[in-house]
């Protein structure tokens, strides 16, 4: 074994393996680098409000709740009876959950809850 071969096997090869592993480890983290939240730093983002999907709430009944498979403009089942107003585009009716009424302030009586600081 010549000196060049020795260096190739005992230095270059391990170095290549180490570099490959390092690249695989550090690479993905370095690529999607985002400003991670650290406690104490100022918060400069716009306020955002996340809501559940509309059909998820108890009163918004959705997928699978319809009595018939939809034949119409909606992907949701067509409902009948008192609920029908929700699927048909008729205005009026007792339901106050319309899109316009949804954003009017509706104070909900005595409120509960908790606060935490960190």
């Amino acid at each position: 074994m010549t000196a060049a071969e020795t260096i190739l096997v005992f230095v270059a090869a391990p170095l290549a393996v180490v570099l490959l592993l390092a690249l695989l480890t550090i690479g993905p983290a370095a690529r999607n680098r985002r400003p991670r939240y650290k406690p104490g730093q100022p918060w400069t983002h716009e306020p955002v409000w996340y809501e559940p999907h509309p059909e998820a709430t108890g009163h918004g009944s959705g997928h699978g709740d319809g009595e018939t498979a939809a034949i119409g403009s909606s992907v949701y089942g067509e409902r009948h009876g008192a609920d029908a107003a929700a699927t048909h585009a008729v205005s009026g009716g007792p339901s106050a959950d319309g899109a316009s009424a949804a954003r009017a302030p509706r104070p909900a009586g005595p409120l509960g809850g908790a606060r935490g600081t960190w």
Partner: peptide
Amino acid sequence: GNTAEAVLIAVSPGQRVVEVVTGS
């Protein structure tokens, strides 16, 4: 929706405050 059945989790990272508000 029906705010009596609503639960709001309000997180303010800048102020380090989290508030949970539950309807009646």
